[in-house]
C-alpha cells in the first residue's frame, strides 16, 4: 500500500469522521460515518486483509449503519444531536487529547521503522482455516451471542405482553 493511497483513504476517513461528529442532524452523522467506514474498508484491503475489508463493508457499513438509519427514521421527533453546553465538552476534549498525545508518543518512540513485507496479503483461505479449525468455539460462542442479542431485541421491542401463565 503506497503513501498516496494511504493519504487519500486516510484523509477521506478523517474528514468524514470530523463532519460526522459535529453534525446536529443524526441522519447526516450516520451517513458521514458510512463514508468513513468505506474508506476504512479500503485501508483494511491495503493492509493485506481482504476478508476483514469485505466484512467491514458488508457487516459494518451494510448491516449496522443501515440498522442505525432504520431506527433513526422510526424515531419522531428525529433526535437532535445537540452537543452539550461548552463547559461540558471539557472532559471529552481532555480524554481525546490524552489519547492523541499517547498515540503521538507511541508513533515517535515506539513503533517507527517496522516495515512490513511488501505486497503481503493474507489469503482468505488461511483466515477461514484459522476461523473454523482453530477458533471453532469462538464461532460457536459468537453465534450464540448473536442469537441472544436478537432474542433480547425482540423482547425489548415487543408491543403486547406474552399471554399470562395458565394457572
Amino acid at each position: 500500500m503506497n503513501l498516496v493511497a494511504f493519504w487519500i483513504f486516510g484523509g477521506t476517513a478523517l474528514l468524514a469522521l470530523v463532519l460526522c461528529v459535529t453534525r446536529r442532524n443524526a441522519v447526516h452523522a450516520v451517513l458521514y460515518l458510512l463514508g468513513a467506514f468505506l474508506a476504512i474498508a479500503a485501508i483494511l484491503f491495503g493492509l493485506g486483509a481482504p476478508l476483514p475489508a469485505a466484512w467491514q463493508v458488508l457487516v459494518y457499513a451494510g448491516a449496522i449503519l443501515v440498522l442505525f438509519l432504520f431506527v433513526l427514521m422510526t424515531l419522531h421527533p428525529p433526535p437532535a444531536m445537540k452537543p452539550r453546553r461548552a463547559r461540558e465538552l471539557v472532559l471529552p476534549a481532555l480524554v481525546a487529547a490524552g489519547n492523541l498525545a499517547g498515540a503521538l508518543a507511541l508513533v515517535l518512540a515506539g513503533s517507527g521503522g517496522r516495515e512490513g513485507l511488501p505486497g503481503y496479503v493474507l489469503p482468505p483461505a488461511a483466515l477461514g482455516r484459522a476461523l473454523f479449525a482453530d477458533a471453532w468455539i469462538g464461532v460457536e460462542a459468537v453465534s450464540f451471542l448473536l442469537l441472544f442479542a436478537a432474542v433480547g431485541a425482540f423482547w425489548l421491542g415487543r408491543r403486547e405482553d406474552p399471554p399470562k401463565e395458565r394457572p
Binding site: I43, A103, L106
Partner: peptide
Amino acid sequence: SVGLHHFVLLSA
C-alpha cells in the same frame, strides 16, 4: 511504502 506508525496514528 507506508510504515506501521501511519496506521497506528490513524487508528488512534
